[in-house]
Design a binder for these strands. Structure first.
Lengths: 257, 257
DNA sequence: CCAAAAGTGTTAATATTACACCCATGC
DNA sequence: GCATGGGTGTAATATTAACACTTTTGG
């Protein structure tokens, strides 16, 4: 799907037939979500936030630019996880349906129709996943999006092309590296309780983690610092707050620069 | 680097600015090797076997085609592992030097000069690694290659662009999945002894594996079947031969079809 | 004092590592 | 028989999972 700042001359400004699709994972209240924009046009077009790669930027920079345009936040954790390169990967059917259903062309549809020769090509797409704190990131929709909403990862809307499969592969990749790369903290606020972290793990892996063993395992990693207690007013023992300890010099929350 | 069967109209037959580079791992006598072709031209141009993606084939099929063109064998274990997408990824300096050093143009150089506008573009490249049995695969060089030789992974020739980095990333990816995906057997003949398998692991991970514990770990995986003994004539106990047990229906040696 | 939920310790089970011993083979 | 290298068993250790108990908090 096109970014908002596409120039008129797609052919020279962007790499042809190569795109980036981002699976933006968010977390809140024990559930894992994915950010899915819906295009403004008639016809229920849901698709992952994606875009193209400028001639003058690296693929990591492109993913960052594309994503920042959608979420309005900087310093996102972002990583490539897989390339999708089947021969049937094109927007032909979706775009033709879109143009047909929206024949009373406004500017965007006219733009698409005029650039159809470019957009309906077969595309190879690089999948990136991103991890963000849903309570901080308020997605700012662009003018091609009707909505930009969070959907539970187990209850996604019907999406174009193979975007559902991309989400599935992204989740599998996330599970493989979650605590190996110490990236879970990107999904939480700066300060969090051990229970919040545990519920996050349970949401990602879709299975329970025993409370005490989880605490021991996480603390043995030696990457958390214990802060003050969090008094909620509940009539029970107050949990500690923790914070991810920034290592000297490294920037775990932004591996791409 | 171009394949041998490139048509004249690169622009329509292939995806522009997108390439595939293959890290072909081979194993023999306790050492891990990588297949590196050297171009026929003056100037010592070493680079990974790579090529482009046809409009009508998936990226997996493209990698398979490219690799089969170089090694002459089918049914290779092959998997994508990472995309390389820096802005400085182009063949400009290498190709300009090549054309300069080989000014007395034969057909190939003329072809390159005529297609320079295409070849010197910035390229995004998908890295694949392949695992082959060096005793079976006899690389058949194409007419653009002076040599196609195996080089020890710790003693590679100086290679163009970022191909050395691609090899390094490929090796790291291989280590991450070697026994999780049960693919080590692709580097060995059909029948092998436990010692041969252990030496292979030691070559890949560059560290020793205790003999008896290694045997137990591998046998506990339950994927090997023990065959007859292998009598070498040495005055010691004869080791058993093993074979990777093909599962019902699955094809571990060829995950891409 | 009580219920609820957090913190922590203790044991059991399992996996990993280290060490030792025995066995087959050809000379 | 003997040296060599392969197969296998056992003990020590480390890691993980299971279970139990204590502490804090507000009503």
């Amino acid at each position: 799907m096109p970014d908002t700042d596409l120039p008129t001359d797609l052919n020279t400004e962007y790499i042809r037939q190569l795109s980036i699709d981002c699976v933006v994972f968010g977390y809140r209240d024990g559930k894992l979500y994915v950010l899915v924009p819906e295009l403004i046009f008639r016809g229920d077009f849901y698709g992952l936030p994606g875009g193209f790669i400028r001639q003058t930027e690296s693929i990591d920079a492109a993913a960052r630019r594309i994503l920042e345009g959608r979420t309005g936040i900087t310093n996102i954790y972002l990583e490539q996880f897989r390339v999708f390169g089947g021969t049937d990967r094109n927007n032909r059917s979706a775009l033709e349906r879109l143009v047909e259903l929206n024949a009373d062309a406004d500017g965007s549809v006219r733009w698409m129709r005029d650039n159809l020769h470019w957009l309906v090509d077969r595309f190879v797409s690089i999948g990136y996943y991103a991890l963000v704190d849903m309570r901080v990131v308020k997605p700012s929709k662009t003018d091609v999006d009707a909505t930009v909403d969070w959907y539970p990862v187990d209850n996604l809307p019907k999406m174009i092309m193979d975007h559902r499969e991309i989400v599935g592969e992204g989740l599998l990749s996330l599970r493989r590296v979650l605590d190996e790369k110490l990236i879970a903290f990107n999904l939480l606020p700066e300060k969090f309780t051990m229970k919040e972290l545990r519920l996050l793990y349970e949401a990602v892996y879709d299975r329970p983690f025993p409370r005490n063993n989880f605490q021991k395992k996480i603390l043995d990693l030696g990457v958390l610092e214990r802060l003050e207690k969090k008094y909620t007013g509940a009539s029970n023992r107050a949990p500690y707050l923790y914070r991810f300890r920034r290592e000297r010099g490294s920037e775990p929350s932004a591996p791409l620069s």
